[in-house]
């Protein structure tokens, strides 16, 4: 039986203010996959990621990361994951090299190993010359790449990217795509959320679309693209990409 990186079953989340963010989400991300989780703002993408990575408490349901239940074996589950969150969440007064090295420490990696590994990752991501300055001095795109380096320092098997290219210019974004492709080719499983649908179309093998806390489509990229309604798109004068048309149709308010 093929191994799964993530299995989420009937996940529900009701926030304290009564917002029902997840209404029973079930999702499977196969190991080695590049999986895109798409949805409009407030659909529940970040809530799923928050629950899986231990930043949000779920209301009910289960989640397993490489077979480790996040409730029963949280340490083992967390050790598999590298997270690049949506918000910048590092101390801007620290050096990028220290930020990445310390992250390795939190995963139990000795400094003698974490430091050269952090240096290499920062160099690979084009931050070699900036790693000894303050993180606050980095540009927006550099800060995103710093977060990717930090997420990779403990060599996770499952990389979770929550809108990693938000606010990043086109050239830089394409460079990041190449880097992510290289990582998947080396066997890393990636879960990506993004609002750039062409990014998902370029990178992902599987796609799930979430709307108002429920999965409305889930399958391979070709399955989802096959849902494209050429005739309806032509009638409405729609000129965007195929995935975009499917996305808008499935998540629209109508």
């Amino acid at each position: 039986m093929a191994e799964n990186a993530l299995v989420v079953n009937d996940l529900k989340k009701v926030y304290k203010n009564g917002t029902e963010a997840l209404k029973g989400v079930s999702l499977t991300v196969p190991a080695g996959d590049f999986f895109a989780l798409l949805g409009p703002n407030g659909a529940g993408k970040t809530t799923i990621i928050g629950i899986v990575t231990g930043l949000v408490n779920k209301t009910s349901g289960t989640a397993e990361v490489f077979g480790y239940d996040i409730d029963k074996k949280p340490e083992q589950a967390k050790a598999q994951i590298g997270l690049v969150g949506q918000e910048l969440n590092f101390n801007p007064f620290e050096k990028p090299l220290d930020i990445v090295t310390n992250q390795g420490g939190y995963y139990g990696i000795p400094r003698s190993i974490a430091r050269p590994r952090a240096e290499q990752l920062l160099k690979d991501l084009g931050l070699g010359e900036k790693m000894m300055g303050r993180a606050m001095e980095l540009s927006g795109g550099m800060k995103r790449r710093l977060m990717i380096a930090r997420a990779l320092v403990h060599k996770p098997r499952f990389l979770v990217l929550d809108e990693p290219t938000a606010g990043v210019d086109v050239e830089l974004r394409r460079g990041m795509w190449d880097y992510l492709r290289k990582l998947t080719s080396e066997g890393l499983t990636i879960l990506l959320t993004t609002h750039y649908l062409e990014e998902a179309e370029q990178l992902a093998k599987h796609v799930a679309i979430i709307s108002k806390g429920q999965i409305v489509a889930n399958g391979t990229m070709s399955d989802i693209l096959a849902m494209h309604d050429e005739e309806a798109a032509a009638k409405s004068g729609y000129k965007g990409g195929k995935l975009e048309e499917v996305f808008i149709r499935l998540t629209s308010e109508k």
């Binding site: 990575t53 231990g54 930043l55 949280p74 340490e75 083992q76 967390k78 050790a79 994951i81 997270l83 969150g85 918000e87 910048l88 969440n89 590092f90 101390n91 801007p92 930020i99 310390n102 992250q103 939190y106 995963y107 139990g108 930090r150 403990h154």
Partner: peptide, 18 residues
């Protein structure tokens, strides 16, 4: 400050640190 300003507490919360 680590939970409110930079939210850098996430660095530890996502790790296996008990």
């Amino acid at each position: 400050t680590s939970k409110f300003f930079a939210r850098s507490i996430d660095e530890i919360l996502v790790s296996p640190t008990p």
